[in-house]
Amino acid sequence: MNETVTLTPEELKARKRRNMWLALSLGAFILLVFAITVSKMQAYSLLGISAQ
């Protein structure tokens, strides 16, 4: 037997807001990891150039 939960309009609105913040946080984390990676790669390539 399947059960569904009926959310009130207020709960739906709150869920939508939570999901939006979660998506934004996830996006920000991905950007941060990308920026760290680029920064590290730059540092390593500079090390490589100075070693040559």
Binding site: M1, N2, E3, T4, V5, T6, L7, T8, E10, E11, A14, R15, R17, R18, W21
Partner: peptide, 18 residues
Amino acid sequence: MVDVTASHQRTASASDYL
């Protein structure tokens, strides 16, 4: 299929999580 109401309100906002 059975329609049930949420057992409790879940209306927490971003400021609550903050």
